[in-house]
Amino acid sequence: MRIILFVVLFIVAAFIGGIAFILFNLDAFVKEAVETVGTELTQTSVTLNETNIDPANGKASLSGLNIANPEGFETDHALALGLVSLKMDPTTVTGDVIVINEIVVDTPSVIYELGESGSNIDAIHENVMSFANKLQSQTSGSSGGETTSSSAETAPSQEASEGPKFIIENVYIRNVSTAVSLNVLGGKKLEAPSVDVHLTDIGKKEGGVLAAEAAIYIMDNLFKDVAASVTNSGAGKLIEDALGGVDLNNVEQQLQEQAGEVLGDDAIKDITKDAEGALKNLFGTGD
């Protein structure tokens, strides 16, 4: 009897110890999950400086969350979220569906970098939506049967495709600061009007969605609003003014006349290619 009692007590102690370990290291687990799934989602480097999780009181915060640029872009980052705060229903934290009352992101920074083939935001948005299609295919079971080696390489990870589901009642992204960058401006950034985003009842209709699915929905809406702000708010006119009223149909000739001796022919051709492609893409005058 004593041996049985000892074994039972040992199992209980081990179980409690395991829970304690998870709770004490919850911040580290969340940080790793955000960086792993975020990088997978955007196909760029996602880093998080610090987390502060208080499940007992239904509060959490993330600070220093940054999304780097895809290859081919040179600005410091695509998106810097700064401080993200969450309030959740603490009674749901250990359940299958966690209810988050609100997520607040205050004054995030977006650098909208334009290149010949589009913007960094467009590139990340395409990556996110591509990942969304793969995730939907995997979680819906539509890819039944054996998985091919090529699809296995690109399939969403276990961290992204499993785990608890979420209902998010409110997401507030306030005062999104957007700077427009173009190589031909020599590193100068032009400010576009700020954007506010308010999303409601994410996952409510479905009875809960995966964290990756919620992130896809939030990022999709944010990037669309940022792109609309840049293209429709007069930022294009600011770029034209910064370029000295450049004629999109005659960029190379104007640069040759104004700075040919300083820049040289090769540099002018590179700048012309960058300027024409980016500006036409921004103004919707491309092919």
Rank of each mutant, 00 (worst) to 15 (best):
R2G: 08
L5K: 11
V7N: 12
L9M: 14
A14M: 14
I16S: 11
G17D: 10
I19M: 15
F21I: 06
L23R: 12
D27R: 02
K31Y: 06
E40D: 02
T42F: 15
N52H: 13
I53E: 02
A56E: 05
A60R: 04
L62C: 05
S63P: 00
G64P: 07
A78Y: 04
L79N: 07
L81G: 02
L83N: 14
M88P: 02
V99G: 04
P108F: 10
Y112Q: 12
D122F: 11
I124L: 13
H125F: 08
L135A: 07
Q136M: 11
S140A: 10
S143A: 11
S143N: 14
T148S: 15
S149V: 13
P156E: 09
E159S: 01
F166Y: 15
F166A: 03
I167H: 03
I167G: 03
I168R: 02
Y172P: 00
Y172R: 00
V176W: 10
S181Y: 09
L182M: 12
E191S: 09
G208T: 06
A215W: 07
F223I: 07
G234L: 04
A235I: 01
K237A: 14
I239M: 13
L248Q: 06
L248K: 04
N250K: 11
Q254F: 07
I268F: 09
I271A: 14
E276C: 08
D287C: 10
